[in-house]
Amino acid sequence: MNGKMIAGIVIILAALVFGAMTFIESNVEYMDFAKAERVNKKVQVKGRWVSDRETQFNATTSQFVFYMVDDNDKEMRVVLDGGKPNNFEIATEIVAKGRFKDGYFHANEVLTKCPSKYEGDGSAVQKSL
């Protein structure tokens, strides 16, 4: 094995280790609110919007505030940096990415999952008759 070969292998290994470390570090894990409260890192929580609680855009801080329950029915105040996400009201499921801060969940991104258009949704066809 010559020097070039060794240098090549070292570079490849270094790149792989670097990639793996970055991967673990930036992997945004799924968890519920209870666990998210314990770990101090960016996580994502899946759940549903609580439509009958305070839901509003605060224009002074430009944050969107709403309540969300996770899959274990734990309710949490979520403060999102930015405006109301697209399709927020009709989403069947939402995913908030962020971290805990002073008793609320500070999200920098909220994804919405819309009702599937591929489902045999008979109500849509009846509307268009």
């Binding site: 991967f23 992997n27 945004v28 894990e29 799924y30 990415k97």
Partner: peptide
């Protein structure tokens, strides 16, 4: 992550910038 941990989760976009 689904194969390793049984739960799907994505990486933060910062992963791509860093690498």
């Amino acid at each position: 992550t689904n194969i390793i941990k049984g739960k799907t989760s994505a990486v933060d976009p910062s992963f791509y910038v860093t690498t």
